[in-house]
Amino acid sequence: MKPPPFDYYAPDTLDEALALMAQHGYGAKALAGGQSLVPTMNFRLAAPSVLVDLNRIPDLSYIRLAPDGGLLIGAMTRHVQAEKNPKVADKHPLLHATMPNIGHPQIRNRGTLGGSIAHADPAAELPALMRAVQGRIKAQSARGSRWIPADDFFQGFFTTALAEDELITELHLPPLPAGSGWAIEEVARRHGDFALVGAFAILHLDGAGRCDHVRISLFGVGDGPMLATTAMGVLRGEKLDDEAIATAAEAAAQKDVDPPSDVHATASFRRHLVNVLVQRTLTQALARAAGQEVTA
């Protein structure tokens, strides 16, 4: 299990990195934390001819407050930095709650947020989180930069909207609507494993107690992070109680997903888990929206 040969560049500036990506095109891969890319190379399931190592570019690791009250996070920010950052805990409790679910301590010390998003593992937490919060991904190339909404970014199995010469440089996580409730739940075989199924829920109630904002984002159930749009439709404009939540969860399981079978779980078990987790996350989110303390 030794990686195939490649040429290696470790640019000191983003401009150099972008020039290298432009120059090497399809055969080039950006090396961020390497926690997914390197195992894939060690198994010889990936053989990039050029690696552009982003780890020496100084300005890609930061967590800042965005003008809208959300967060701007540099692509090379390591998981551990987001996990332990007080700004994240304070301004984005959902991101804060998500981080410990990702891999193990050693993985989080090295893995980056931008790398996770670019890798787009359908069973990973961060891509689904980005969809849940309606985040945006800043893609940069020698040609310029653009913001891609998370809803457009993930395009299929390990496939994204990034062009060959583009790098992710920044993530924008808008703030959750004031007074909204949120939750993340996942079922994994072992602690730290990729999820069999995972779910994020965010909801907000209007003055009359009706749901005026809801996002349910699922992972592990398709070829990428997916929204439970039917379930969201069921809830929008409704008063939320156990029955409404059960109806939404059932809709998510039956209409919104067509999950895969693999050695860890059958499609039918995953469908069942979608139902369970959508119920659990909505129930928790509703409690939080009502100002209750929730221990997941």
Partner: peptide, 27 residues
């Protein structure tokens, strides 16, 4: 394991525990 699961190769890299099988020596 050389795929980042078993942790046997854990070293401290600038003081942080990391899996040395998932880093290249050049890094």
């Amino acid at each position: 394991c050389e795929h980042g699961v078993c942790g046997a190769c854990t070293i401290l890299f600038d003081g942080q525990p990391v899996r040395s099988c998932l880093l290249f020596a050049v890094q």
